[in-house]
Design a protein around this nucleic acid. Sequence first.
DNA 1: AATTTGACCCCGC
DNA 2: CGCGGGGCCAAAT
Length: 118
Amino acid sequence: MYLIEDATPAEKYKAILGVVKRVPKGCVATYSQIADIAGLPGRARMVGKALGATFASSEIPWFRVLRADGRIAFGADTHIGKEQAMHLSNETIEVKNMRVNLKLYQWRPESLWGDSTD
DNA sequence: AATTTGACCCCGC
DNA sequence: CGCGGGGCCAAAT
């Protein structure tokens, strides 16, 4: 059986980016969540690495990835930070003080959450 | 080849 | 909310 853990770094990055692409418009995910879904639990940092390597690729919704507390990973005074906040706002995601309410916008993949009639 | 760095996270205090 | 400490691992020094 193929384990992503045994794959080359390049393959891991591809797996990570593949998950990021699946984050739906209007939703956000956290670095650790992406790592977890990609089959790489505990590798949140690698998600940042992967995104940085393919930075601003039009195919990848990098701006939908936030830190564990819902904060944007860049300062409010940085160009990239403002750009990310703008992208999110354009998707009707409310960004206050560089932070998003995960309770409201976090992506819930059905494969992991099952069909709860919450 | 050893050390540091980085779009991170979790725990305890 | 803030700090320190440990974990994580590929890439850059």
